[in-house]
Design a protein around this nucleic acid. Structure first.
Lengths: 198, 198
DNA sequence: ACAGTTTTAGATCAATTGCTTTAGAATATC
DNA sequence: GATATTCTAAAGCAATTGATCTAAAACTGT
């Protein structure tokens, strides 16, 4: 019963993601946002409420299309250890390819916005728990199949993989060098190998 | 031949470090800075030039007193493997203790300011190279002494330790939980152990 | 066709940003 | 003790910030 919105919501969200991803929350002004989203400031406030809400929506959109998609592709389509390897291979490759050094919006936000915003703190921590849970499921399945070592608990191995993952995301912004990132992953994957004796 | 400065430079730098550490570069205004440093805005510009320069000095001061001090204490006073363990133990402990979730100013800056500022990009990358070099020296020395495994190259093990370190720094801001951080470090240290067979 | 609603665009708001200026107080050298 | 220099304090600068308002344009349902 009224004039319909002229813009596609997921399309403008993609643009918002890109902007926050490149410049962070604080350094992105509402005008920057509106321009890159191709809408006016009034439309932005009309459709989303305020800057924080745009960010909230953008972050959720990013997590869904980035991490969620990756987990879906690898966990269901590959054996556990291969899923872990593919996960890291893809992230390393994208980190090296990305000339903008954007890193990971979630990790960037974990450092920039989480510490001073209880809401985002909880949201971001939850996602990190999900990343850890993904690794844990893979490790547990691999341990059952005998393709992953059982000398360390699945919990600890998952924690290590989470940490390695976050480390890669930091280096992707500061030192996106292939030798460094691949060399970092190599020992981590080696740690998963079962001991030849058992 | 003129009126001397009324404030102690390292004291105000400590205050600047604390401010940038807690709120980041963008979210810290010059007024915030001046107030926490206990000097006026004019004195700040008089003594340091501009906000960027204050940050540059503060970051250098932080690296020196934080990372530099730690390396000095552990590398010279402990056997190589113990130095690595002490390094991680101290960082984990401080991360858990810190109610402000400040994390590490260097890592925070690597994500916030490095990607868009070539100067800081180089500076921060250099420090990360030094962290990696510290780990590599420890691993190499440990491998010579036989207390660290030689199944992986010292270069790769150092890269892994660097990545684990950065991962801890991220989690320190988002999920500073003892079980998580200690569980993360455990497999990494296990990886260093020489194989019993050799 | 009309009424009702919601979109747009652009001007505009007060507040804050990094930074400068002006004025005066304080000190080392001669 | 006079001079020169550099400090501090506070007001003030233009630009930008997040957010709002007014009005005109556009669409749906009756």
């Amino acid at each position: 019963m009224a004039r319909p919105r002229e813009f596609d919501e997921t399309a403008v969200l993609d643009a918002a993601v890109r902007q926050f991803w490149m410049y962070g929350y604080e350094a992105t002004s509402v005008r920057d946002l509106a321009q890159s989203m191709g809408i006016t400031g009034a439309s932005l406030y009309n459709a989303f409420g305020d800057k924080r809400s745009v960010f909230r929506r953008a972050l959720a959109h990013y997590v869904e299309t980035s991490f969620g998609d990756r987990v879906g592709r690898f966990e269901k389509g590959l054996p556990p250890k291969a899923a872990i390897e593919a996960f890291f291979r893809e992230i390393v490759e994208r980190s090296i390819q990305d000339k903008d050094r954007k890193g990971c919006l979630l990790v960037n936000s974990a450092l920039e916005v989480a510490p001073h915003d209880p809401d985002f703190q909880a949201t971001i921590a939850e996602v990190l728990v999900k990343v850890e849970a993904f690794f844990r499921r893979c490790v547990q399945a691999g341990q059952r199949d005998g393709e992953i070592s059982t000398t360390q608990s699945a919990e600890d191995l998952a924690r290590l993989l989470l940490g390695v993952h976050l480390g890669i995301r930091v280096l992707a912004r500061a030192r996106p060098e292939r030798a460094l990132l691949e060399g970092l992953v190599r020992p981590a994957l080696e740690l998963l190998k079962p001991t030849p004796s058992s």
